[in-house]
């Protein structure tokens, strides 16, 4: 991780960091260099798995010091999703809610993650607290986080097969599993 060196001082917070490099030719407004939309009054940044880590790094530098929530979402079969034009819709999304506790503002990142190679770079170097949340996303959606310190199952049993929150994981498909206890 090269991002975490010498960046302990948060820069002066400027909410319109991406404003300068705004290109009038681009279809949608941008913030921090990525397309930005508004959802029910909340700021949402869109990115893909390659730009995800740099974007989080930029947000950390801008004062978003708390990772409030990280979760996956599976859009298999959902045609109603509205995304900015430049963003290629993929099956999975990683949704990160960040909080700037000093300026009292929130921001949300939706990173598109494709099904064939669902691997992102872990954001635990920025936010140690994202560890459990990323482990949950690994369990539930089969996403992978490169550089995660402990990518073991957290909520599911160690020998569980499949990722329950994927849309193609039918309810009741697998009978309830109990771990056998040796010697009993």
């Amino acid at each position: 991780m090269n991002e975490d060196e010498g960046t302990e001082e948060t820069k002066d917070s400027d909410p319109d960091v991406g404003e300068d490099d705004q290109d009038p030719d681009l279809a949608s407004p941008r913030l921090y260099g990525v397309p930005v939309t508004e959802s029910h009054g909340q700021v949402v940044l869109h990115t893909d798995k390659n730009g995800y880590n740099d974007l989080v790094g930029a947000l950390v530098d801008d004062g978003f010091g708390v990772c409030i929530d990280l979760c996956g979402a599976d859009y298999l079969g959902n045609e109603t999703r509205v995304l900015p034009e430049e963003v290629t819709p993929e099956r999975f999304e990683v949704v990160v809610n960040l909080l700037d506790i000093h300026a009292v503002r929130r921001i949300r990142i939706r990173a598109q993650v494709d099904e064939s190679d669902p691997e992102l770079i872990s954001i635990t170097p920025f936010y140690p607290g994202a560890e459990a949340m990323e482990r949950e996303a690994i369990d539930m959606f089969g996403l992978q986080f490169q550089g995660h310190p402990d990518p073991t199952p957290i909520l599911l049993p160690d020998d569980w097969e499949g990722h329950p929150l994927r849309k193609d994981f039918a309810i009741g498909r697998i009978p309830v599993q109990f771990k056998a206890v040796e010697g009993r």
């Binding site: 959802s39 029910h40 949402v44 409030i68 929530d69 949704v95 809610n97 949300r108 939706r110």
Partner: peptide, 23 residues
């Protein structure tokens, strides 16, 4: 259809709900 995150202060801390609807 849409997505939203709401949060409240529960006795244990921030309790949030991320909800996605497809209509």
């Amino acid at each position: 259809a849409g997505e939203v995150y709401t949060s409240v202060e529960s006795p244990r801390g921030e309790l949030g709900c991320y909800l996605v609807s497809d209509g």
